[in-house]
Amino acid sequence: MRKVRRGISDGGGNREEAKMEEDGVNLNWSLPVPSVQELVRQQRPDVVPPRYLRDDMVLADHRRESSQGLPCIDLGKLMDPPSRSTELHNLHSACHQWGLFRLVNHGVSDEGLRMMQENVQGFFELPYHEKQKSAQRPGSLEGYGHAFVTSHDQKLGWNDMIFLKCLPNHERNLDLWPQNPPEFRIALEKYSEDMRKLAVAVVNYIGMASGIHEGELDLLMKSFGEGKFEIRMNYYPACPEPERVIGLEPHADISGITLLTECADMPGLQVLSNDDCWVTVPPVHGSIIVNLGQIMEIYSNGTYKAPDHRAVVNKEKERLSIATFCYPSPSLPVGPSPQVLAATGLPPLYQTLSHSEYMQRFFNRKLDDAVPFIDTLKM
């Protein structure tokens, strides 16, 4: 496994971190790096520090194509028998063509969304020393910091984040859950339960759209009801040279599905279309973006896609977003659906793995691996 070069971190380092560097790296922990928010707040740079510059990326990638073709799915129509068939057809098309759609009439209360968004904003407005009470610990991605920083000379994204495991309850590390703002924990508990209920409903209809039914559909829903829910709250500061940095690098999620809400009206999420254009997904108040993860692409035997997406930044204003990664229960194997295989008559494109093996394969790969993770799982 690739070795990490020894160096000085802004946290001063310790023996545990040094041991991890000597042993090699995986993607299940991250080296401490400076806060981008504090960099902007204290130094107000006119130019971007070299470690954030991404001139290796084609500048044209930052063009913002029309978002008119992005699908919008109405959960109310899916729940209503007279309109269900037509909306299932629309859902199937969205999952096949884009792997991402805007969800409206989703049933999550405006109050629940507002409470979570305000508390996330409140957390990132705290003094740095207060946020540091939730800082990542050596050997874990959970907490306040950055994700997937595996070397001291690695290029960095223009973002800070706090990542917390929320469900099931026994997975929570409450030592890392902020106690400020005072209602943060209450908001996060309610929000994670709302996202679990929504994920079960969404997965139900995605399963129906893919052609599964009866026992297998019930098993899929039950698995997400008992599954893991992890929430990443992102802060992207305004940037003096937005065309030279990336907020979050292009990637596909490894979850079952991901549910994304925006904390305001500043766009930043982009999805890669079938014709290789980056399409901006504009925020729409009260809606939730559903993004298929690679577990669902595998489950559909490649019929549905887990899209590449990224976050860009801007010169004028900060952006905050909340991503909920929804995983099925570890008891559900990660592999193509038997009913999908039977209905299509196609051979399986992907191996069937245990949930733990699937996760281990992801976290034990190299960050700069040229082969997309999902391709390593093909038959």
Rank of each mutant, 00 (worst) to 15 (best):
I231A: 07
R232E: 08
M233G: 07
N234D: 03
Y235D: 03
Y236F: 05
P240A: 14
P242R: 10
E243R: 12
R244L: 13
V245E: 03
G247F: 02
G247I: 00
E249L: 12
P250L: 01
P250S: 14
A252W: 05
S255G: 09
L259I: 08
L259S: 03
L259V: 02
L260C: 03
L260N: 04
L260M: 06
T261Q: 15
C263L: 11
A264P: 09
D265K: 03
M266S: 14
P267K: 07
G268P: 03
Q270W: 12
Q270S: 10
L272H: 13
L272V: 14
S273W: 04
S273T: 11
D275V: 09
C277N: 15
V279R: 06
P282Q: 02
P282D: 06
P283M: 09
H285P: 12
H285M: 15
G286Y: 15
G286C: 13
G286F: 15
S287D: 10
N291F: 05
L292R: 07
L292P: 00
G293L: 03
I295T: 14
I298R: 02
I298H: 02
Y299I: 00
N301C: 03
Y304T: 04
Y304A: 07
K305W: 03
A306T: 08
A306M: 06
P307I: 10
P307C: 10
D308V: 15
H309I: 06
R310C: 02
R310F: 02
A311M: 01
V313T: 12
N314G: 11
N314Q: 05
E316Q: 13
K317P: 03
E318V: 11
A323V: 06
F325L: 13
F325D: 09
Y327M: 15
P328Q: 06
S329Q: 06
P330L: 10
L332K: 03
V334K: 00
V334S: 01
V334Y: 00
G335D: 00
P336V: 00
Q339E: 08
V340P: 10
L341W: 00
